[in-house]
Deep mutational scan, measured.
Amino acid sequence: ADDEVAKLLVDAYRKNDEDKLEEVKKRYNISDEQVKRLIRKVL
């Protein structure tokens, strides 16, 4: 599931889509710190 979330985050990140990032964060209840970590893992 982590990889799936990471893909969604990276996708939103690449598109610079703040709304999507927020949506994913809320849906999976993850912190900014986790977001950064997941994005770093993929990029």
Rank of each mutant, 00 (worst) to 15 (best):
K7Y: 10
K20F: 11
K25Q: 07
K41V: 07
I30V: 06
V42K: 07
V24H: 03
K15A: 15
R27V: 07
D3K: 08
A12K: 00
D11R: 05
E23Q: 10
L9F: 04
I30Q: 01
K41R: 13
D19M: 12
K25M: 10
D2I: 12
I39Y: 02
V24D: 01
E4N: 10
Q34G: 05
K41E: 09
I30K: 02
V35K: 01
Q34L: 08
L38W: 04
V35H: 02
V42D: 03
Y28E: 00
N29K: 09
S31N: 08
R40E: 13
A12N: 01
R37Y: 09
A6T: 12
V35E: 03
S31E: 03
D17S: 04
L8C: 09
V10D: 02
K36I: 13
L9P: 00
V42E: 08
E22I: 09
K26A: 10
D32W: 15
D32M: 05
L9K: 00
E22V: 06
S31M: 02
R40M: 14
K26I: 08
K36N: 10
E33L: 06
K15S: 13
E22G: 05
K26C: 06
K41N: 10
K26N: 08
S31D: 09
R14N: 10
L43P: 03
L8S: 04
A12F: 05
K26S: 08
L21Q: 02
K41F: 09
N16V: 03
D32G: 04
K26R: 13
K36S: 09
S31F: 02
Y13F: 11
E23C: 07
K26V: 07
V24I: 15
Q34F: 12
K15N: 14
L21A: 03
K7G: 06
I30G: 00
V42C: 11
L38R: 01
Q34S: 06
D2Y: 14
R37I: 13
A12T: 02
E23F: 08
V5F: 06
E33C: 09
V10M: 13
E22C: 10
V10H: 07
N29Y: 04
V42Q: 09
N16L: 06
Q34C: 10
V42T: 09
R14P: 01
R27G: 02
L8I: 08
D3V: 10
K15I: 08
E23W: 13
K25V: 04
I30W: 09
E4S: 09
E33A: 10
K15M: 13
D11Q: 07
I39D: 00
A1M: 15
D2C: 15
E23P: 01
K7V: 07
K26G: 04
D2A: 10
N29V: 03
R14Q: 12
I30E: 00
D2S: 11
A1Q: 11
D3G: 09
K7R: 14
L8A: 09
V10C: 12
Y13P: 01
D19E: 14
N29W: 02
E22L: 11
K36E: 12
E33Y: 06
E33T: 06
L9D: 00
E18G: 13
V10P: 00
K36Y: 08
A1R: 11
N16Y: 06
R27W: 06
Y28P: 00
D2M: 14
E23H: 05
N16S: 07
A12L: 09
N16R: 13
D17Y: 03
L8V: 06
S31K: 04
Y28S: 00
K7P: 03
L8P: 01
V10N: 03
L8T: 04
V42R: 06
K7I: 09
L43F: 10
L43E: 06
E22P: 00
A6D: 04
Y28H: 04
V42W: 15
N29D: 06
V35S: 07
K25E: 00
D19L: 13
N16D: 06
Q34T: 11
R27M: 12
R40C: 15
R40I: 11
I30M: 13
K36V: 11
Y13V: 06
E22Q: 11
V42F: 15
E22D: 09
D11E: 12
V10S: 05
Y13E: 01
L38I: 14
A6L: 14
A1H: 13
Y28F: 11
N29S: 08
S31V: 02
Y28T: 00
V35P: 00
V10Q: 06
D19T: 12
D2H: 11
V5H: 03
D17W: 06
Q34R: 05
V35I: 09
D32H: 05
R27Q: 10
L43G: 03
E4Q: 09
E33F: 06
L8F: 04
I30P: 00
V5K: 02
V24N: 01
D19R: 14
E18I: 15
I30F: 07
E18Q: 15
K20C: 09
R27F: 09
Q34D: 14
Y28Q: 00
D17P: 02
A12V: 03
E33W: 06
Y28R: 00
V24K: 00
D3A: 11
Y13Q: 02
V42L: 14
R40Q: 13
Q34V: 11
K25T: 03
A12G: 02
R40N: 12
K25P: 00
D32N: 07
K15E: 12
E4W: 14
L21H: 01
I39A: 03
D19S: 13
K20E: 10
L21E: 00
N16P: 03
L21Y: 05
E4D: 11
D3Q: 09
K15H: 13
A6Y: 14
K25S: 04
V42I: 13
K41C: 10
N16H: 13
K20D: 04
D2L: 14
V35L: 13
V24P: 00
K36D: 11
V42M: 14
Y28A: 01
Q34E: 14
K15Q: 13
L21W: 04
E22K: 10
Y28C: 03
Y28K: 00
V35G: 03
K36G: 08
Y28L: 03
L38M: 10
N29R: 07
D19G: 12
R37T: 10
E22H: 08
D11A: 08
